[in-house]
Deep mutational scan, measured.
Amino acid sequence: MAMNGTITTWFKDKGFGFIKDENGDNRYFHVIKVANPDLIKKDAAVTFEPTTNNKGLSAYAVKVVPL
Rank of each mutant, 00 (worst) to 15 (best):
D38P: 07
G56C: 08
P50Q: 03
N23P: 02
H30K: 06
K14D: 06
S58C: 11
A59K: 01
R27G: 00
L39F: 11
K20M: 11
V31C: 08
N4E: 08
W10D: 00
H30A: 08
S58E: 10
N53A: 08
V31S: 07
F18W: 10
L67W: 13
N54V: 11
N36G: 03
L67H: 13
G15C: 07
N4R: 15
P66I: 13
N53G: 13
L67P: 14
G56F: 09
E49T: 15
T9L: 15
W10Y: 10
M3L: 12
I19R: 00
T8R: 10
P37D: 03
F11D: 07
G17K: 01
V31G: 06
N53D: 09
F18Y: 10
P37H: 05
A35W: 13
N53T: 15
I19M: 04
N4M: 13
K55V: 09
T52H: 12
P66A: 13
K14V: 06
T6M: 09
K20W: 07
D13Y: 09
N36E: 06
D43G: 15
Y60I: 15
K14I: 05
W10N: 00
K20D: 04
V65K: 11
N4G: 09
R27V: 05
L39T: 06
G24S: 05
K14Y: 09
A45M: 12
V62Q: 01
Y28W: 11
M1F: 11
D21K: 01
G5I: 02
T52W: 13
F29K: 02
K55Y: 15
F29G: 00
V31E: 08
G24D: 05
D38S: 12
I40R: 00
V62H: 02
L67C: 12
A2L: 14
I19S: 00
E22R: 06
T6D: 03
D38N: 11
H30V: 07
F48R: 00
V31N: 05
V62E: 00
N53H: 09
Y60K: 15
G56M: 10
Y28R: 03
D43M: 10
M3S: 05
G5N: 02
M1G: 14
D38M: 09
P50T: 05
A44I: 07
H30E: 13
N23T: 05
N54L: 13
F29W: 02
I19E: 00
N26H: 12
T52A: 12
K42T: 09
W10M: 02
A35S: 12
A59T: 07
N23Q: 07
M3F: 07
S58R: 05
F11M: 05
K63H: 12
N53K: 06
K33W: 15
D38W: 15
I40S: 02
N4H: 15
L57D: 04
F29Y: 02
K12E: 10
F18S: 04
T52Y: 12
N36V: 05
T8Y: 09
T9N: 11
D43P: 02
D25C: 10
T51Y: 14
F48I: 02
P50S: 04
A61R: 12
T8F: 07
L67F: 12
N4V: 10
S58L: 08
V62P: 01
K20F: 11
V64S: 02
F29V: 04
N54T: 12
D43Y: 14
P66E: 14
A45E: 09
T52M: 11
N23W: 08
L39C: 12
M3G: 03
K12G: 08
K12N: 08
P66Q: 13
P66H: 11
D21M: 02
N36K: 04
F29R: 00
K33S: 15
V34T: 06
G17Q: 02
P66M: 10
Y60Q: 15
K33N: 15
V31L: 10
K41Q: 11
W10A: 01
P37C: 05
F16R: 02
N23C: 11
N54M: 12
K55S: 09
M1N: 12
V31Y: 10
K41T: 10
V34H: 03
V65S: 08
A59G: 03
F11V: 06
G5E: 01
